[in-house]
Design a binder for these strands. Structure first.
Length: 423
RNA sequence: GGAGGCGUCGCCUAGUCCGGUCUAUGGCGCCGCACUGCUAAUGCGGUUUGGGUUCAUCGCCCAUCGAGGGUUCAAAUCCCUCCGCCUCCGCCA
């Protein structure tokens, strides 16, 4: 949620941000009006409540007929106070409902437009030329089946479409990848956390995952808990309601969790293999810091992702996502996309977002600012490894015989230099 | 699964049985001022967090005793639900 004071003081800024996102800018005026009515109804309530309290003290002191007279008066007043209180609460609710619909203020410099209007910041590495090498590359699933590394059929039998088993070298490869990512995180001072994957509604909403894409999230109705699509959710909730000490710099965490996504509305997209699945594993970086340091911290998270991508030795590019493609909490989002030979295009492997104070305001996460005042902290997140990385590793390191060379940095963790087809 | 105890403004703590004098007690810590070669000690004052009002300051007001409801003229205090911590019993490993 953005700061209502900012909206009051600089509505044009909020309108511009909404416009950049391709969202309703008329909501700004609706909020100003709702804020006005909230404040006037609150003032009205508070005035009568103050009177009620002071008369209540007289009641305590009064005796006999005088007391009865006061009671008659305060009885009516109590009913009126109750009305005004619920009117004020309703006005607050109305304002909140509108505020929850406003995305974070887009960071200056973010490209304007939609999904296809990203700006490529940098391209690293050169895709292999399989024509020159003299063979047609297999896609990740065909390779994995040859290696007996992924079993989609049995995944579907047991859990349905978009579920799978990682098996043998597939399982080993995933664990190695997550392990290498976690080691890197620790080496850079991140604190490892294995997080809950079920969270309460307040946390899910606070992290910003129930605003527009609630249908993307699995919900356990009988317990009213939500399955997280990323450990970002639990990590954002980790310090909710707390006053942080950031005097020694940002708090940096590396969360490890299984992630669950309903993938509603993606029928027919990426149906082959493990590119888009309902369940996968991820190492996620998460940072709490002073908002003044957030942009610099964002670059640090990106550097972490690049270091990790360097270890799997695949060509990739970095894109600056356009405003219209940002999630509500993000002020800026930078994705690293790896080259997938059989698709002839780059696919997202990591995503790092600067959420500034958007999540922390909802989750009431503050810190003691330089001025001595309590301020809302900034939060950032970024991917360090996911199951999907296997796709890029298999396809980019395949050989004509269907074997796959393990990138040097993973070899010790996998326990193999080359993954060999079975049979 | 069953029985019970507990949660107070940084930390500890009084208050809850029996509703009003709670504007939440006291200690520690912290901040300011005074005194003082310096430090310490001492004294005095301040010290939850949000919000409203105000151009702003001072101030005034509202909410806040784990969270949310309820009863009442009035709730830290009574009732209900939830969250968390602890103890015991049962069951499973």
């Amino acid at each position: 949620m953005i700061d209502i004071k900012l909206l009051r003081e600089d509505p044009a800024l909020v309108r511009a941000s909404q416009r950049a996102r391709g969202e309703d800018e008329g909501i700004v005026d609706a909020i100003l009006a709702a804020d006005e009515s909230r404040r006037s109804s609150l003032t009205e309530f508070e005035r009568l409540r103050a009177e009620q309290k002071s008369v209540g003290k007289d009641v305590a002191r009064a005796q006999g007929a005088q007391r009865a007279a006061l009671l008659a008066r305060t009885k009516d007043m109590a009913a009126r106070v109750k009305e005004l209180e619920s009117a004020a609460a309703a006005a607050q609710e109305q304002l909140d409902a509108l505020m929850y619909r406003v995305g974070n203020i887009v960071e200056p410099g973010v490209p304007v437009g939609g999904e296809d209007d990203y700006v490529v910041r940098k391209t690293v590495g050169t895709p292999r030329d399989f024509a020159v090498e003299g063979f047609t590359p297999k896609d990740h699933l065909e390779l994995a089946e040859g290696l007996d590394a992924i079993d989609m059929g049995r995944g579907a039998k047991v859990a349905g479409a978009r579920f799978y088993f990682l098996k043998g070298v597939g399982a080993r490869l995933e664990m190695a990848l997550l392990d290498v990512a976690m080691h890197q995180a620790v080496a850079h001072g991140f604190v490892p956390l294995v997080t809950p994957t079920l969270v309460m509604t307040d946390i899910m909403r606070g992290a910003g995952f129930l605003d527009e894409h609630a249908e993307e999230v699995y919900h356990l109705q009988s317990d009213d808990l939500w399955l997280t699509g990323t450990s970002e959710v639990a990590l954002a909730g980790y310090h909710s309601g707390e006053l942080l000490d950031l005097a020694n710099g940002p708090l940096r965490y590396a969360g490890s969790s299984t992630c669950y996504r309903r993938e509603a509305g993606s029928y027919g997209k990426d149906t082959r293999g493990i590119i888009r699945v309902h369940q996968f594993n991820k190492i996620e970086m998460f940072v709490y810091c002073d908002p003044a340091e957030a942009a610099a911290e964002h670059e640090r998270l990106l550097a972490m992702e690049e270091e990790m991508l360097g270890k799997i030795e695949v060509p990739y590019r970095i894109i600056d996502t356009a405003a219209g493609d940002l999630g509500g909490p993000a002020a800026r989002k930078l994705d690293c996309e790896a080259w997938v030979p059989t698709q002839g295009r780059y696919r997202e492997l990591t995503s790092t977002s600067n959420c500034t104070t958007f999540q922390a305001r909802r989750l009431n996460t503050r810190f003691r600012g330089a001025s001595g005042r309590n301020e809302i902290a900034a939060t950032l997140n970024g991917t360090l490894a996911t199951t999907r990385w296997i796709v890029a590793i298999l396809e980019n390191h395949q050989q004509p015989d269907g074997s796959v060379v393990v990138p040097a940095a993973l070899r010790e963790h996998v326990g193999l230099d080359v993954l060999m087809p079975i049979g």
